[in-house]
Structure formats: structure tokens, C-alpha cells
């Protein structure tokens, strides 16, 4: 999102330089007529440094209106936005896949830990607290699965411990 804003700002800045400058030059030229010669020369120099390429705003042509300027900005930004959105989507998909893999690995670890307690037949209060903290790190489905396994083991008498 930040990259998009930076790109947008850069593009907008360029467009302003390219299309708004002639406007300023035009108004400045008319104003220069009434200014002293040295001041007019100075102003003219500043504007000249931002003279747009002839292909974009040929000298003597009228400049773009605000609506046209907005349309151009939109058109220029559209592919950038689409590209960034695509990149974000790909990143999101990768993150989701990675998260799912992490969830599965974490679930397996907690399940193995619980299996060890069940094999021992007993779980201390401290271990129960630790186990529940680990269960809490799982996604909702994993939490349900492990709590069901834990409570089921206690209910069946294969695991003795205090919930």
C-alpha cells in the first residue's frame, strides 16, 4: 500500500511538472509583460527549466483541463495498481499456504505431546497449563480437535489430570 502511494505521488508529481507547468508559464509570460526586465528574466528561467516535451504539450496548444488531468492520472495508475494488487494477492496466497502448513505442524506437535501424556496416563497441573497454552496457539479447528482429544482421554480414564 505504501509503495502504491509513493508511486502515485511520483507519477502525480511528474504529471504536474509536465502539464501544469505550461499553465504557469503561460500566466507568467503574461505577467512578465508588466514586470521589470530583470525580474521577468528570472521568472522565465524558472519556468523554462520545467518546459514539457513537445510531444506532450506542444508550445502554443491549450493545456489539459482538471478532468482530463484526472483521467490521465487514473489511466497511468491503473496498471500500477493492478500490478501491486496482483503482487499482494500472490503474497497473501503464499502467506495463507505457509500459515496452513505451520498450523498443521503445530497441531501435530501438540497432538504428539498429548499422546505422550496419555501414554504416561497422567498429566500434572503444570503440564496441563502448558498444554493448554500450546493448544491456544492453534487455529480454532485445531483447538477444538485437541481439546476434544484431551477431554475425551480424561473422560475415558486413560488420562488422569485436572482441567
Amino acid at each position: 500500500m505504501r509503495a502504491l502511494l509513493v508511486l502515485g505521488a511520483m507519477l502525480l508529481s511528474s504529471l504536474v511538472t509536465l502539464w501544469v507547468a505550461p499553465l504557469l508559464r503561460g500566466s507568467a509570460s503574461s505577467a512578465n509583460a508588466s514586470l521589470p526586465a530583470q525580474h521577468a528574466a528570472s521568472t522565465s528561467t524558472e519556468v523554462a527549466s520545467a518546459t514539457p516535451p513537445a510531444s506532450i504539450a506542444p508550445a502554443g496548444q491549450s493545456c489539459l483541463s482538471e478532468a482530463e488531468l484526472r483521467r490521465v492520472v487514473r489511466e497511468e495508475l491503473a496498471p500500477l495498481i493492478a500490478g501491486l494488487a496482483g503482487a499482494d494477492g500472490a503474497k497473501s496466497q503464499a502467506a495463507t499456504a505457509r500459515s496452513a502448513a505451520d498450523d498443521k505442524r503445530q497441531l501435530d506437535l501438540v497432538s504428539q505431546q498429548l499422546d505422550r501424556y496419555i501414554r504416561d496416563g497422567v498429566i500434572s497441573d503444570a503440564d496441563m497449563a502448558s498444554l493448554q497454552i500450546e493448544i491456544g496457539k492453534l487455529d480454532k479447528a485445531g483447538q477444538r480437535e485437541m481439546l476434544s482429544k484431551l477431554v475425551g482421554a480424561i473422560n475415558s480414564g486413560t488420562l488422569h489430570g485436572r482441567l
Binding site: Q132, I135, K137, K140, L147, L150, I154, N155, L163
Partner: peptide, 29 residues
């Protein structure tokens, strides 16, 4: 209620005897 950070869970339990089949626990999120 077991209030682990980000993981509020609860358990209800009842027993009428020492045997496992005389006791019950359930959990809730």
C-alpha cells in the same frame, strides 16, 4: 475458565463416583 492469552476456554465437569464412567467433562470456546 482457563484464560490463556487469546485463548479463553472453559470446562464443565461433574462426577458421582470414582470411576471414569461416573464422571464427565466438556469444554467450550
Amino acid at each position: 475458565i482457563a484464560n490463556s492469552p487469546g485463548f479463553p476456554s472453559g470446562f464443565c465437569q461433574a462426577g458421582v463416583g470414582a470411576a471414569a464412567e461416573q464422571q464427565i467433562n466438556c469444554f467450550t470456546l
